[in-house]
Each structure stands twice: as structure tokens, then as C-alpha cells.
């Protein structure tokens, strides 16, 4: 009832209160992204940018045989990471919500899962290097156990290490939203299902998974956009052997081919937005969050 109070004066103060935010978001996000879109249609000779319209940036990006491979590779990384993080995120949330009795402990353990979020991604990624190298911890453990006779070189600087780092860095983006929607499930619903004779497995697949749809969707959006926006992990963890769309774009930028980089970025953003819309088609997150 109070939300509708003082309509005229309230609206004015709303504008005053939101003005700094609006101003900053327009100058720091709105205008720069419009510039990037424009940039993708401008001409360049590799040194200077000419503000004249051209399709050639898109043409060269789309005609390059590498582009399709890059996009496929990026989507592959995103999907593999998505599947693994969803499984881990769901299992951990399921344990926390339904098997940890003490509410304080439950929140504490969730916090344990989220603290790395506030530390440096770069350092967290670097911390895998002593594990994965040819002389790394994994290889020496495996050799000591006699499981392998020569060190595995596939562990570091490979697609494996890229995906491992993604999972390592981004799983918490899956745990938090899934935990959030799972902890909102009314325990009576589960009791009712058990009363009706449902097995644990049926409760899990017929009740809990559907009721966590919002969390899974939200987490998927985080993970997909994070993986598809990454250039650093793929560069370092693959030792320069693998590339994603953004890392290729970063190379373009380093060589000052800004318009091509912009065109590539716009294509990627379109793809990301399509994926996000597809996820939103399945789950109406805004409505679910408003509950």
C-alpha cells in the first residue's frame, strides 16, 4: 500500500535518486556499446579508422574459415562447462538444503562455496599450474601409485585444463541460484509426495528438479555468458593452442584491427543473447524471482 504513496512528489524524488545510476550506465555502457556497433561498420587500414560505412568487417569475419571453428569451439566449451557445473551445483545444493540439519551450518557451508567469488580469478586459475604440469602434483601422485609410467602431458595446456579451470571458476555461479530456489521449496510438498508413496528418486525428478528450474536457468545464464566472454583462461590454460571467439577478438585488438574485433564481438553478443533468450523462453525468471 505504501508503494503507491505520494505519487507526484515520489516520482520526482525517484528520478533524482536514480539520476546518478542512469547517467553512469548510459555513459559507461549505453554509449560505448553503441560505439562498438558503429565501429563494426567502419573502415580501417590497420592504422587509422575511417568513419565510413562498410559491411566488409562482417564479410571478412564471416568468410574466414576460422570463424565457424571458433564459434563451434566456444559453444562446445560453454556446453561442457554448463553440464558439469549444473551437476556439481545441483548435487551440492541438494546436500546443503536437504541433508544439513542446522540452518546456520547450511548458510555457513554455502558461504564457504561463495568466498572464492570475492577473490581474484586470475590467481585462482594460476593455482592449478602446480597441479597439472608434467612435473605437477597429479602426475607425481599417479606415477607414485604406479598408474602411469610416463607423466601425462594432456593435463596442462589442453582443452581439458581449460574446461577444468572454467568449472573451477564458475561452479559457484551455479550453486548459489540453485541453492536459492531449492531452499524455497516448501518441505510440506515433499512430505505430501512421500505420503502419496513417491520414492526418493521420484521426488527428486518430479518435484525438486522442476522446482529448481529458475535457479538452474539463472545459473546457466551466468555460466554461458562467462565462458563465452572469456579470453584469458582459454589463452593461458591451453598454452595458446586453443582459442575462443573473444580470445581471437583480443588478438585482433592487439593488432589494432578494432573494426573486425567489433564485428566479431557483435556476432558473439547476438549469439549470447539468443542463448539467453532461449533459456528465458523455458523459464520466466522475472516472474519467478518476484514470487
Amino acid at each position: 500500500m505504501s508503494s503507491r504513496s505520494n505519487s507526484a512528489g515520489g516520482r520526482f524524488s525517484s528520478y533524482l535518486q536514480v539520476a546518478p545510476m542512469a547517467l553512469l550506465m548510459f555513459t559507461l555502457v549505453g554509449i560505448p556499446l553503441v560505439i562498438v556497433v558503429l565501429l563494426s561498420f567502419w573502415q580501417t587500414d590497420g592504422i587509422t579508422i575511417y568513419r565510413e560505412f562498410t559491411w566488409s568487417n562482417y564479410a571478412s569475419v564471416l568468410n574466414s574459415p576460422v570463424t565457424l571453428a571458433l564459434f563451434i569451439k566456444t559453444i562446445k566449451f560453454a556446453l561442457i562447462t554448463l553440464i558439469i557445473t549444473t551437476i556439481i551445483g545441483f548435487t551440492c545444493s541438494y546436500f546443503l538444503v536437504f541433508y544439513v540439519r542446522n540452518l546456520k551450518l547450511q548458510i555457513g557451508l554455502l558461504l564457504v562455496c561463495t568466498i572464492p567469488f570475492w577473490t581474484s580469478d586470475v590467481i585462482r586459475m594460476v593455482s592449478w599450474i602446480p597441479f597439472l604440469g608434467r612435473e605437477g602434483i597429479f602426475n607425481s601422485i599417479l606415477m607414485r601409485l604406479g598408474l602411469i609410467s610416463h607423466p601425462l602431458s594432456v593435463l596442462l595446456y589442453s582443452d581439458f585444463s581449460v574446461v577444468l579451470a572454467y568449472v573451477y571458476l564458475f561452479t559457484l555461479f551455479m550453486i548459489v541460484p540453485i541453492f536459492n530456489s531449492m531452499s524455497k521449496i516448501n518441505p510440506n510438498i515433499i512430505e505430501a509426495a512421500r505420503d502419496a508413496g513417491a520414492s526418493k528418486w521420484m521426488i527428486l525428478t518430479n518435484l525438486i528438479v522442476p522446482l529448481c528450474k529458475t535457479g538452474i536457468a539463472l545459473g546457466s545464464i551466468f555460466v554461458v555468458t562467462l565462458v563465452m566472454g572469456d579470453f584469458f583462461v582459454v589463452n593461458v590454460m591451453s598454452g595458446g593452442q586453443s582459442a575462443s571467439v573473444v580470445s581471437a577478438m583480443k588478438n585482433n585488438i592487439d593488432q589494432l584491427y578494432y573494426p573486425q574485433a567489433a564485428a566479431m564481438a557483435i556476432l558473439l553478443v547476438v549469439l549470447v543473447l539468443l542463448l539467453v533468450t532461449a533459456i528465458l523462453r523455458v523459464v520466466d525468471i522475472r516472474r519467478e524471482l518476484a514470487r
Binding site: L28, V29, P32, V36, L39, T225, K250, A261
Partner: peptide, 19 residues
């Protein structure tokens, strides 16, 4: 605008601001 800023690759926002 906020959601877009979170979803778009960070380096792209950097490119936009620098340009």
C-alpha cells in the same frame, strides 16, 4: 542496461569505453 553490462564480454565494454 545493467543486465547487458553483466552479460556482454568484459573486454567488449572496455573496447567501447576506450573508443
Amino acid at each position: 542496461l545493467c543486465i547487458i553490462s553483466l552479460v556482454v564480454p568484459g573486454i567488449l565494454v572496455g573496447l567501447g569505453i576506450s573508443q
